[in-house]
Amino acid sequence: MTYKLILNGKTLKGETTTEAVDAATAEKVFKQYANDNGVDGEWTYDDATKTFTVTE
C-alpha cells in the first residue's frame, strides 16, 4: 500500500510517499525521514486517506 506524509515543519514543508505493508511500518519510515530532516512535531494519521501529517 502507498502511504503519504505531509510535512508542516518550521523550515521544511512538503510531501513524500512510501510503499509499506501496514501503517505501523510506514510510520517508522516517515518518523525516520522527518528526524533526518530536522522536523519534530505533533503527528496525526488519517486511515481513510492513508496520510500521516507532522506539524511543528
Rank of each mutant, 00 (worst) to 15 (best):
K4D: 02
E56H: 07
T51C: 06
T18Q: 05
E42D: 12
K4G: 04
D47G: 09
A26K: 00
N8I: 13
T53A: 05
T55W: 09
T44Y: 09
Y45K: 01
T18P: 01
E15Y: 14
T51H: 03
F30M: 03
A34L: 09
K50L: 12
K50G: 05
D36Y: 09
T11R: 10
N37R: 14
T25R: 06
V29L: 09
M1G: 12
E42T: 13
A24C: 11
G41E: 01
L7Y: 13
Y3H: 04
T49R: 06
V21N: 11
V39R: 02
K31L: 07
E42F: 12
K10M: 12
N35T: 14
G38A: 07
E42K: 11
T11P: 04
W43Y: 02
N8K: 13
T49H: 06
D46Q: 05
T51R: 04
T11E: 11
E27K: 10
E27M: 15
A23V: 12
T25C: 07
T49G: 05
F52W: 07
L12P: 04
D22I: 03
G9K: 04
A34K: 01
Y3D: 01
Q32D: 07
K4S: 06
N37P: 01
E56P: 06
A20T: 05
V21K: 12
N35H: 14
T25L: 07
G38L: 07
F52D: 00
K50C: 05
F30K: 00
T55I: 08
N8S: 07
N37E: 08
Y33F: 12
E56R: 04
M1C: 12
K50Q: 10
Y33G: 01
G9E: 03
V54Y: 03
T16G: 05
A26M: 01
G9S: 11
T18Y: 10
L5C: 08
L12S: 08
T16Q: 11
D46R: 03
A24V: 10
A20G: 04
K50Y: 10
D40A: 13
T16E: 06
E56Q: 11
A26C: 02
A20R: 03
V21T: 12
T55F: 09
T55E: 07
T51W: 02
G41A: 02
Y33S: 02
K28D: 06
K10R: 12
A34W: 03
T53E: 06
Q32L: 09
Y45N: 00
T55Y: 07
V21L: 13
D47I: 10
T25M: 15
E19P: 05
A24F: 11
A34H: 01
N37K: 14
K13D: 05
K31H: 09
T51G: 02
A23F: 13
V29G: 04
D22Y: 04
T2D: 06
L5A: 03
L5V: 04
A34Y: 03
M1D: 14
D40R: 12
F52H: 02
V29W: 14
D36W: 07
D47V: 11
T2L: 14
Y3L: 01
T49F: 05
Q32A: 14
T16H: 14
N35C: 10
A48P: 07
T49V: 06
T53K: 05
T16W: 15
E56W: 12
G41K: 01
D40Y: 15
T49E: 07
K13I: 10
A24M: 12
T18D: 03
M1E: 13
Y3W: 05
V21I: 13
G38V: 03
D47H: 08
E42Q: 11
G38D: 08
V54F: 05
T44N: 11
T25Q: 13
A48N: 10
T16L: 15
D46K: 03
Y45S: 01
G9A: 07
K50D: 02
A48E: 14
F30E: 00
K13G: 05
V39P: 02
E15A: 09
K31D: 02
T17H: 12
N8R: 11
D36K: 07
D22F: 04
V54P: 00
F52S: 00
M1Y: 15
L5N: 00
A23Q: 10
E27S: 07
L12W: 14
L12V: 14
M1Q: 14
K13V: 12
A24T: 09
G9C: 11
Y33A: 03
A48I: 12
A26V: 02
K31T: 05
D47F: 09
E56Y: 11
K31C: 05
T11W: 13
T44F: 10
V54Q: 01
T53G: 03
T53P: 00
F52G: 00
D40P: 04
Q32I: 07
T18R: 05
D40Q: 14
A34R: 01
N35E: 13
T55C: 06
A23D: 06
G14N: 09
Y3Q: 01
K10N: 11
